[in-house]
Design a protein around this nucleic acid. Structure first.
Lengths: 188, 188
DNA sequence: TACGATACGGAGGACCCCGCCACTTAGCAA
DNA sequence: TTGCTAAGTGGCGGGGTCCTCCGTATCGTA
């Protein structure tokens, strides 16, 4: 396809900026109509740039997710593989618990049928970026056997979802992450 | 207030039966309008019996939640407090992961402002019923220090939410519960 | 400048939640 | 049995969202 027209690019940028604010304010089910209104754009234009709500969320969180991925890559060199992993998981948890809608968006694409999941979807990116950290920690015996990146990401999004309406989501989520890491009932 | 009129009771029963099916089919955000239509009742009648969506979910899950509470009470006598707790947590997880909308309903009232939370809301019931099990296990040293009933319930609902769209929710949720209990990275 | 493809916005349909209000009907009392 | 009364009901209208279609304005180029 040929390059996008200038006005289209302009509108996209405006929409994305508005979407970021609206999602921050109202979470994953912010009104698309409202976003169109604020951006002073027809509602059809929103749908044109973001065919699904999920596509919009994906775009909204792209930067943040990218940041988390970079963080993971920065950590792969660390000597202490366990500490590196824990730091990353802490960062992911803090983001998921703080940024409204992010956890919802992540669960939604953990759910989507595997065929439709694109390489560049948020979960796929996080999975790919976090995989080395997890593997290395596992190899060093710092992880329970059988635990995958997907497992830890699922648990983290779960924690974020369950603490979404807590007075202090980030603090609570971090505490629960700690419990999950250490084990609630480590056994005999 | 005087006793409910007979037709009101009839309508309530019909509505509840329909609601159970609709929620099972469409999850926590089944259409109230649709429920009214199927029950052959005006939409205002639905709202009269269930002022909020949450009230309806509460009613829909009452039996199930009651069952889980009974289960907890049955287990309090068990000699092995850890095994008792684990059995109960397994049961709660299975229910939360299997019954559509239940996990959502539970998070919603973990969230609600404490003033509005009634004694008989689902979370409160589960908390109360599970508390003895948790305390006993904690006293026997079978639980990490500082873990409360609320913590385990929050983690379980989180797991249920995050696995809601998985091909085999119950199996996956149970597996993740296992990881959470044992600890993902039990440390040195 | 003129043209064709691209992108736009608004209208309209379908659905939903919600509050209001006039009407029906169950249940009590005479 | 017959009224009476208030609890209970249903439908309508308003406001909101999502989504699709189609005529039109705009951009980029020939």
């Amino acid at each position: 396809m040929p390059v996008q027209r200038a006005d289209a690019r302009r509108n996209y940028a405006r929409l994305l900026a508005v979407a970021v604010e609206e999602v921050a304010a109202h979470g994953a089910d912010a009104s698309l109509e409202q976003i169109a209104r604020i951006a002073d754009v027809g509602s059809a234009t929103v749908r044109r740039h973001f065919p699904t709500r999920h596509a919009l969320l994906e775009a909204v969180f792209r930067e943040r997710v990218g940041g988390l991925c970079d963080h993971a890559r920065d950590l792969t060199g660390r000597p202490d593989s366990r500490a590196a992993l824990l730091e990353w998981l802490g960062a992911v948890t803090a983001s998921a618990a703080t940024i409204r809608g992010l956890a919802t968006a992540l669960t939604r694409d953990l759910t989507a049928d595997p065929g439709a999941v694109h390489e560049h979807c948020a979960t796929a990116q996080l999975t790919e970026a976090g995989d080395p950290l997890v593997r290395r920690a596992a190899a060093d015996g710092a992880l329970a056997p059988g635990v995958t990146v997907t497992d830890v990401l699922t648990l983290i999004t779960g924690i974020a979802l369950a603490t979404e309406h807590h007075p202090h989501p980030a603090a609570e989520a971090t505490r629960l992450l700690g419990l999950t890491l250490a084990g609630i009932s480590p056994g005999p």
